[in-house]
């Protein structure tokens, strides 16, 4: 019973990412050599592709279906003209900036994964926090954008193009928000006495985060760049 391979002791606190007490398990043999957790995330992301595929198709089908939107001034509420579809209201500059911020968060996520791999606890916390913050800025931007559109008169049910727009970007926003929660939970777990935040787990969180970012590149192109 002395060869169970667990080096961790209860009375000696070893910083989790430096102690390496989990290395035994990180290389746990599976038929493919990839851990079950990481493989399950890849498989799940495969499924997510079809979810966004369906939503993007819906938007593409409906984006040019006109339906009169009475555009109001966001401050005075005065009627300032008519729009036919949601794309008439886009502020491409604003969305480009918030998209850039989301993409930047992919970079900070990479730093977080690197820090975890090097067992640099403080840096890991820093970059996890930064990534979550950048994600939050993006979601905040989306909330602002939605509010603007709504104040201008384009509600969820104004016409099918607005419905499709809000549904697609809304689903993406929910995915980013869930990602932020996961990042914050991971960050919180690094403070636990015996942390379960292994480098691989950070990497798995990263997989999800990068996926959400990559999908946004697609959505941004489809919604804002293609006329």
């Amino acid at each position: 019973m002395t060869d169970v391979g667990i080096e961790m002791t209860d009375d000696v606190k070893v910083p989790p990412l430096e102690g390496g007490h989990l290395t035994e398990h990180e290389v746990h043999p599976t038929a493919t050599g990839i851990s079950n957790e990481k493989l399950s995330m890849w498989v799940f992301l495969g499924s997510e592709c079809l979810l966004f595929g369906g939503l993007i198709s819906t938007y593409l089908l409906y984006k040019n279906r006109p339906g009169a939107i009475e555009v109001r001034d966001t401050v005075s509420g005065a009627h300032v003209g008519n729009a036919q579809r949601i794309s008439d209201l886009f502020d491409i500059g604003f969305t480009s900036v918030s998209s850039f911020i989301l993409l930047a968060s992919s970079l900070t996520m990479v730093f977080a994964v690197l820090a975890a791999a090097k067992h640099q606890q403080d840096k890991l916390r820093l970059w996890l926090g930064t990534t979550a913050a950048l994600g939050a800025v993006f979601v905040g931007g989306q909330v602002y954008e939605f509010t603007e559109f709504l104040n201008k008169g384009a509600g969820y049910t104004s016409n099918v193009s607005t419905s499709a727009f809000y549904t697609l970007t809304g689903f993406h926003g929910v995915h980013v928000s869930i990602g932020i929660l996961i990042l914050l939970a991971t960050l919180a777990l690094t403070f636990r006495e015996r942390s379960q935040v292994t480098p691989e787990r950070v990497e798995i969180v990263g997989l999800y985060w990068h996926f959400v970012d990559v999908v946004w590149i697609l959505i941004f192109t489809v919604i804002y760049l293609i006329k």
Binding site: V43, G46, S47, E48, C49, L50, L51, G53, G54, L55, T58, Y62, R65, P66, G67, Y156, T157, N159, V160, S161, S163, A164, T167, F171
Partner: peptide, 30 residues
């Protein structure tokens, strides 16, 4: 794995149509 998200999208759109007033499947409103 690949079929369920597609029906999920369809069911979400249907739910939004029925409960939140969108018109994804309503031909008379686009």
């Amino acid at each position: 794995l690949f079929a369920l998200p597609v029906i999920a999208v369809a069911l979400f759109l249907l739910t939004f149509d029925r409960l939140y007033g969108s018109n994804f499947f309503n031909a008379s409103l686009g």
